[in-house]
Amino acid sequence: MKILTFSTLFPNSEKPGHGIFVETRLRHLVASGKVEARVVAPVPWFPSTHPRFGNYAKQARVPREELRHGLRVAHPRYPTIPKIGMNVAPLLLAQAAKPTIARMLDEGYDFDLIDAHYFYPDGVAAAMLAKYFNKPLVITARGSDITLLPNYPLPRRMIRWAARRADAVITVCNALRDEVVALGVDAGRVTSLRNGVDLQLFRPTERAAATDTFTLLTVGHLVPVKAQELIIAALPLLPGVRLVVAGDGQNRQMLEDLARTLNLSDRVDFLGAVPQAQLRSHYGAADALVLASSREGWANVLLESMACGTPVVASRVYGTPEVVAAPEAGVLMAERTPQALADAVNALRAAYPDRAATRRYAEGFSWDDTTAGQLSLFEDILNRRQRQPSGALACRTP
């Protein structure tokens, strides 16, 4: 089976952690030996690579094509238009990707199916491409593409159009499946396939001797939806507890200012962005991971922490209760407030699980079931397509 994975959420040499969950799922699928894959991961166009342009320059430095873990990844450029960009982004993405995909086909990579990730604008663009190239389509919903973007009228209409055009929709948790069905998509066409965890990469490490200090770790981009400020604001209610923050982003200065205002600078360590391969030591050194997000589809950091033997404290949003579903996994906050977060940390400390039991819990979330589910779904789609009467060929121009 040959597939084409399409998404702007995919790592590249300049942003190796960007969309790594999409790459990880694909790598496990290809490792089954039953799938060959190529990737089209568009990046925004920008005219200069000069460092003074920061993130924009990074995007400009992304190579047109690269090889990642044996996967060929193409990065066509698409224009972004201020103010109106959200509405036209699917069309711009599709138009940018067409020549790249046409070239793949002309070179002999006649893929069987488009595997798209994130509904808007990526999934909508993929639906346009699937129609143009006459290929079956599967779209995976991953979080805010379903929990937030349908609140806007035009994206909502386009998401519903793409979902109807798709041969199947995958969601990374049951809570997202319910949201997709609520948009009017036939429940029989929506499959929940949760993310797994790399149990070889994330595993227990040797821990330092126990001390009286209880260490919390939070991992993720420092952006409003992750709400790390709730964790910092809870620290005055948690004497003897320190916080390690792994990640970077637009909220970093605000979070550092908050720690200083609350006289917590000596109890909060900001590590900046940490490569995924180095996270294991931080998970292993912590006593608990904390995730205070206002929205999450399926938070991979929760399972990564558990796989290292470290239990979690997390907000009760969307797919998170499906991840934190046993005492050995950790504790869910009653609500998203500093007091509720402190209460959850204290509850975890009062009944702290055996770290080996936390690791065993995470072992139930390997990628094997997800890979098997994808293979079954893709094969079923292709078998159904073969049984259909031959229709008109794709109207692709040379």
Rank of each mutant, 00 (worst) to 15 (best):
F6W: 00
L9C: 10
L9K: 00
G17D: 06
H18W: 15
H18G: 04
E23F: 03
L29R: 00
S32C: 01
G33Y: 00
K34D: 12
E36P: 11
V40N: 02
P44F: 03
W45Q: 07
H50M: 13
P51S: 08
G54N: 09
K58A: 13
A60K: 02
P63E: 04
R64V: 11
R64L: 12
E66S: 12
E66Y: 02
L67H: 12
L67E: 13
V73M: 14
A74K: 10
P79R: 11
N87G: 13
A89M: 08
L91W: 12
Q95G: 07
A96W: 05
K98D: 01
T100P: 08
R103G: 11
Y109M: 05
D110S: 04
D110R: 10
F111P: 01
L113N: 02
D115Y: 02
D115T: 04
A116H: 11
Y118S: 09
D122S: 11
M128V: 00
A141I: 00
A141D: 08
R142H: 14
S144F: 06
L148Q: 05
L148E: 11
L148G: 05
A162I: 04
A162L: 04
R164C: 02
R164Y: 01
R165K: 13
R165L: 08
A166K: 04
T171K: 11
C173I: 01
N174H: 14
A175I: 10
V181C: 13
G184Y: 07
G184W: 02
G188N: 11
V190L: 13
L193E: 04
R194L: 13
R194S: 15
G196S: 08
V197W: 03
L199D: 09
F202K: 09
R203F: 12
P204L: 11
T205P: 05
A210F: 04
A210K: 15
F214V: 05
H221T: 14
V223R: 09
V225C: 12
E229F: 07
L230D: 04
I231R: 07
I232A: 08
A234T: 06
P239N: 12
V241H: 12
L243E: 00
L243A: 06
V245I: 15
Q253T: 12
D257P: 04
D257N: 15
A259W: 04
T261I: 14
L264D: 07
D266A: 13
V268Y: 01
V268R: 00
F270T: 02
A273Q: 12
A273S: 14
Q276I: 11
A277F: 05
Y283V: 01
A285T: 03
L289Y: 02
L289C: 11
S294Q: 14
G297W: 02
L302Y: 05
C308S: 12
T310G: 09
P311R: 01
E322Q: 06
V324C: 07
A326W: 10
A326R: 13
A326M: 15
P327V: 09
P327R: 10
P327S: 08
E328V: 12
E328Y: 06
G330N: 08
P338G: 00
L341P: 01
A342S: 09
A344R: 03
N346Y: 09
A350C: 10
A351E: 14
A357R: 10
R360Q: 14
R360M: 15
F365M: 14
W367H: 06
L377R: 06
F378M: 13
D380V: 03
D380A: 15
I381L: 04
I381N: 03
R384W: 06
R384M: 06
Q388I: 01
S390Y: 03
G391W: 02
L393Q: 08
